[in-house]
């Protein structure tokens, strides 16, 4: 399967991964290699396991079987390995998950100060730089509740970037947004992609997938059904399930 062949250098290697919630087999024999600098879009019907898959990549979910290597570190139950992986993997959630008791600036400086042990002034400089990049330089002293959904999600992106991750995971970053705010968030992510960030993005924004994805992964019932370049994926899907999904989502 040439489409699935990894670029020379792997950022994430997933090899025969299985996961169960009790008796429920959420992820079945997942094999995927994400190259450095590669942009992967994961799509599929709800309940197909796509969120669970990217949550495995930074150890928010445990897998029971198979190998998962991120930046050369194998994720096992070992907390030290999980810490190391998280140090270099940023994540953006569907519901932003900003810390509501902290200002925008404090949200962004918290981890740099307490994980990377940067001095406060340095962490604030860094945070202001990334907040300016997501066009929120004016809002640094506001609390999350004072921002719109789109602004909150951009803060969440800046917060993740402040840890200088080498990989970014996006878990349906625009699904909880009002339609008019989707573009501002997607533009931010596109900007990141243009700078060569490795990213794995779960999303239903097919226009976005076409624009930035190097490969599109389609999941259904906990398995990867199809992996392809976006042109091929959207114009000539090979599997019936993919066709059905696309016919429902592209209208």
């Amino acid at each position: 399967m040439s489409e699935n062949s990894p670029p020379q250098d792997a950022a994430v290697e997933i090899d025969g991964l299985d996961k169960w919630y009790g008796d429920f087999h959420v992820l079945r024999d997942i094999n995927l290699v994400v190259g450095k600098g590669e942009r992967i879009v994961v799509c599929g019907p709800s309940g197909s396991g796509k969120s669970t898959l990217i949550r495995c990549i930074n150890g928010l979910e445990e897998h029971q079987h198979g190998r998962l290597v991120v930046n050369g570190i194998e994720l096992r139950r070992d907390p030290a390995a999980i810490d190391k992986v998280r140090r270099n993997v940023g994540m953006v959630f569907q519901h932003f998950n900003l810390f509501s008791h902290l200002t925008v600036l404090e949200n962004c400086t918290l981890a740099p100060m307490h994980v990377r042990k940067l001095p406060k002034a340095e962490a604030e400089d860094l945070a202001r730089r990334y907040l300016a990049r997501v066009r929120l330089a004016e809002q640094v002293n506001k609390y999350p509740a004072q921002l719109s959904g789109g602004e909150q999600q951009r803060v969440a992106i800046a917060r993740a970037l402040c840890m200088s991750p080498s990989i970014m995971l996006f878990d349906e970053p625009t699904s909880a947004l009002d339609p008019e705010m989707v573009t501002e968030v997607l533009d931010t992510i596109v900007g990141l992609a243009e700078d060569g960030m490795t990213m794995v993005c779960v999303t239903h924004e097919m226009g976005f997938a076409r624009q930035v994805a190097d490969r599109v992964v389609f999941m259904d019932d906990g398995e990867i059904v199809e992996i392809d370049r976006p042109e091929a994926f959207f114009t000539a899907p090979r599997h019936e399930r993919t066709k059905l999904f696309l016919s429902r989502i592209l209208r």
Partner: peptide, 8 residues
């Protein structure tokens, strides 16, 4: 989860 993902 957000705090975990940030490495805290």
């Amino acid at each position: 989860e957000a705090a975990q993902a940030l490495g805290l």
